[in-house]
Amino acid sequence: MRTPASELFWRWCFITLLLCTCVVVVPLLNVLALSLSDPARVSEVRGLTVFPKGFSLVNYRVLLANPLFMRSILNSVFITVVGTALNLLVTSMAAFALTRPKLPFKRFFMILIIVVMILEPALVTEYLVVKKIGLMGSLWAVILYKTVNVYYLIILMRYFEEIPPSLIEAAQVDGASNMTVLKNIVLPLSKPALATLGLFYGVFHWNEYFRASIYLTDPMKYPLQLILRQFVVLDDTASLIGSGALFSYDEAARLSYDALQASTIIVAILPVLIIYPLILKYYARGVMEGGVKE
């Protein structure tokens, strides 16, 4: 039911959309192209190049052979896996307790949650508390500082409230404990919600760099994003070259910084790209296929 004039208008809109898509994709492909190019031809890769010039994995081989870099990947994986598991455990336990009518002081706890949501502690006082409880220099300082995201807690509470109370009461009449009800009834019914929150918590942990930069002192404990910040954003190559650092003098002379930086970026993006289809599946699909789902 479109007139020729509006047809032309929508065609321009479509071109605009494709342009937006290109603006997102081209810089990403450019980084990928740079990282995969033959070191001898790196200078041919310009800002808008999307295909590698020649092909070589030497940048990745150098990175993966490096103890500091490998260690940072392991640190990031540890922070992400342990952090996300802890997030889901603590958040779902709290959401379950807070949605039970029999919870003592329920009103008080609900007010507490709103207080936590709207009052942000000062960076300095958080730092001093972490120092005081002896977590300074430990990966746990990075993992624990966001054990519960209050917004996610509220989303999960809304989800739990949808579960028919009769299901839970029936189990309790049979003598099931709260933990059993949570484990055997509530959590299995909440898999999509838990998957969505798990993915968001996971991406959050993988992308974390700031708390790591203020709480960690030993470079061997740094997560990948912090190495990336030092190497790519601050362009601090000096501290990363030499014995025991990111690159040997030999490698630094042979390879292009730009290409090594690009490879580091790609390694940092890769896990996000791998789980991205799942994010689309659990969170965005409802919207993409037309249904509205929170």
């Binding site: 336990m93 919870l103 003592p104 508390v129 409880i133 500082y145 807690l153 709260n178």
Partner: peptide, 22 residues
């Protein structure tokens, strides 16, 4: 049901240490 407080406890400790005390 006081046993529900056990389930809430870890979150409360977190809120106390990382939000209320700071």
């Amino acid at each position: 049901d006081w046993t529900l407080l056990i389930l809430l406890a870890p979150a409360l400790v977190y809120f106390l240490v990382y939000h209320l005390i700071p």
